[in-house]
């Protein structure tokens, strides 16, 4: 009897979350794919039906005939979308590198901090992650505005005599992404650096290696799994980021998340926004699969 329950229990433990994610995460992608092949229509919902099963097999065949790649052709033909994809990838890549450059020294400093201090530092890195993303982005508007706090400070110090224009530029997006995603970079880096055996460095230095050479030859290569994990955690969501380019980047900057949003909410063009999403997903599939594999490997090692 107990064994029967146990078998049933183990099935349930797997099946319930599996089924949930299947229905609410996987199936929706197929619907997006389906609608991206549909036509815009003045209706509710605003697209022509495709693959509807309610008309039986004949209806299915008819619907399949109506399938069209027009949205995709349109997307690929319009330089606006192409530029939005390219500039999203570029902005995400630059921000990822900046986050790495800023996050690495922090993670390194934490990993070498006195043992008693480390949990506190770890907590301090995680804490901003708990505070609202929207609010943290909003905080930067007040800082970066022409009459904002940063310009006030710089003018007061006499560093500049004209307020810098930072808000509504790509620079503001970089600052926003680096700031918001910094904990995602620091945490995996810290995890690998903390586990590292520092006697290796001491040995290298005893053998005449300079600290900088020891860093390049030992610390950095050993921390590569953390570098990869952190970079993926920053890069992938940053490509599709909406809030940061919208609030800090202004109307002049181009990112695909913003394009998708305005296609959907302003133009109410569901098929085109679906096509935008499908292409974005195709671009991100390789890094996502790579990230997931790396995670699985890291878990198996642990």
């Amino acid at each position: 009897m107990g064994r029967l329950f146990s078998a049933l229990g183990s099935r349930l433990v797997i099946a319930v979350p599996y089924l949930w994610l299947f229905v609410f995460f996987l199936v929706p992608f197929f619907i997006v794919l389906k609608i991206s092949l549909s036509q815009t229509a003045v209706a509710i919902p605003p697209y022509l039906p495709v693959f509807g099963l309610d008309e039986g097999f004949a209806g299915l065949v008819r619907n399949l005939r109506e399938l069209s790649f027009e949205n995709y052709l349109w997307l690929l033909g319009d330089p606006l979308y192409l530029n939005a994809y390219l500039s999203s990838l570029w902005i995400a890549a630059v921000s990822t590198i900046l986050t790495l450059l800023i996050g690495y020294p922090i993670a390194h400093g934490m990993a070498r901090a006195p043992l008693a201090l480390r949990p506190v530092l770890l907590m301090l890195v995680i804490l901003p992650f708990w505070t609202s993303f929207l609010i943290r982005v909003y905080a930067w508007i007040g800082i970066l505005k022409p009459e904002g706090l940063l310009n006030q400070l710089l003018l007061f110090l006499g560093v500049i005599d004209q307020p810098l224009v930072i808000i509504n530029t790509t620079t503001a997006i970089y600052i926003g992404i680096v700031y918001s995603y910094l904990p995602f970079m620091v945490l995996p880096l810290y995890a690998t650096l903390e586990k590292m055996d520092y006697t290796l460095i001491e040995a290298a230095q005893d053998l005449g290696c300079t600290p900088i050479a020891a860093f390049w030859k030992i610390t950095l290569p050993l921390s590569l799994p953390g570098v990869v994990a952190g970079s993926m955690l920053v890069f992938i969501p940053a490509v599709g980021e909406f809030v940061i380019p919208d609030l800090l980047g202004g109307s002049g900057t181009l990112m695909i998340g913003k394009t998708l949003w305005s296609e959907f909410f302003s133009n109410r063009d569901w098929p085109v926004s679906s096509a935008v999403a499908v292409i974005l997903l195709l671009i991100l599939v390789a890094p996502i699969v790579y990230f997931q594999r790396a995670q699985a490997r890291a878990r198996e090692r642990a």
Binding site: Y18, F25, V32, P237, G240, F242, G257, A277, F291
Partner: peptide
Amino acid sequence: LIFAPLVMPEVITGLSLLLL
């Protein structure tokens, strides 16, 4: 299915759920 939503851009998740 567990790890993908962690990094999936929110606009994609949002749009796909809405369409569902």
